[in-house]
């Protein structure tokens, strides 16, 4: 529907080639939103995704500058991302401090490290080989952007893992009732740590995609991405207190946000008004979800409150 409106008011929006290539602008956000879904469903949050993306991107650039093949460098970036995520996960499960705070701290730390590594010079690394640049800007048969292909593949994998595997079921279980999950033998700490590892790894993937799309990497390439990624998840129907959300919803959420930006750009709506619109949409989308689910939510809330009376769960405010 959004598309129909935009194509009606802004000729050129529905030009198929434009439409497909415009997805290149928000695939990085989409990829990180996929893994953020897991984190949020367990009741956590990862504010450090943008910083991890910067750090992975810069490291990839440095590896490549020191003579490594670009693809090996890219894989190392993914490994590094997983490692950074592992650190996040360990801080959270071992010390029991809140994910919001732990990842706020690592947001600062990773971001700062990325800036230091990128160096003072002109701060960016570029000149990557053409084969790598194809990943970010090329398209198959001139219509299917490679980035979109990668995203679709990842979305299928994540959807499968979340809905069809034991791991996915445990993710939901923890989000719905961590205490019950713990007592029924789920290795809660294990599952939670993995969600952060995956989040780090996907930040690495996002860095590889962005590096290719922009033909360069910078120390601040992931700045301010965290809130956009979280917004995509929430617009896509993931419950910020954990327990519910689907990959399909998040994919739609990411497209709504991405297409919205593109559409508003085409209408020459200034970036200021875009920010207001995005905020309103976020509130309205979640508000309407809330109202339509009011009944089922109310019964659940009573259960949860009773639980917290017993001191069993420590979830966010309902």
């Amino acid at each position: 529907m959004e598309m129909i409106v935009f194509s009606a008011v802004a000729p050129g929006f529905l030009n198929f080639e434009n439409l497909m290539s415009s997805t290149n602008n928000f695939m990085a956000v989409g990829v990180m939103a996929l893994s953020m879904t897991f984190v949020i469903i367990t009741g956590g949050i990862d504010l450090s995704v943008g910083s991890m993306m910067s750090l992975c991107g810069v490291s990839m650039g440095l590896f490549w500058q020191h003579g490594l093949n670009i693809w090996i460098a890219a894989i190392l970036a993914l490994v590094l991302g997983a490692l950074l995520g592992f650190i996040n996960g360990q801080i959270i499960v071992r010390t029991g401090i809140q994910p919001l705070i732990a990842t706020l701290a690592t947001l600062f730390i990773y971001g700062s490290l990325a800036m230091v590594l990128a160096g003072q010079g002109d701060g960016s690394i570029y000149g990557f080989p053409q084969s790598y640049l194809f990943l970010g800007t090329g398209s198959l048969f001139r219509i299917m952007p490679v980035q979109l292909l990668v995203f679709s593949f990842l979305a299928l994998v994540f959807g499968f893992v979340l809905q069809r595997t034991n791991y996915g079921r445990r993710v939901y279980f923890i989000g719905n009732n961590e205490a019950a999950a713990l007592y029924s033998g789920v290795r809660v700490q294990h599952v939670k740590t993995y969600t952060y590892v995956i989040s780090g790894c996907m930040s690495g993937v996002a860095a590889v995609l962005m590096g290719s799309y922009f033909a360069s990497v910078r120390g601040d390439m992931g700045l301010n991405y965290e809130l956009t990624v979280i917004t995509a998840c929430l617009v896509g129907g993931v419950n910020v207190f954990g327990g519910s959300g689907t990959i399909f919803g998040v994919v739609v959420g990411a497209f709504i946000l991405g297409m919205l930006q593109q559409g508003l750009n085409m209408l020459n709506v200034s970036s200021v008004e875009q920010s207001i619109v995005t905020g309103l949409i976020l509130i309205a989308a979640v508000g309407i979800q809330q109202m339509s689910g009011l009944f089922s939510r109310r019964t659940r809330r009573i259960k949860k409150d009773r639980m917290s009376d017993l001191g069993l769960v420590s979830t966010g405010r309902e």
């Binding site: 207190f241 920010s275 976020l282």
Partner: peptide, 11 residues
């Protein structure tokens, strides 16, 4: 949820 409200009003 407060985080959503204030994320929205932030922008």
């Amino acid at each position: 949820p407060p985080i959503i409200v204030t994320l929205g009003t932030l922008s």
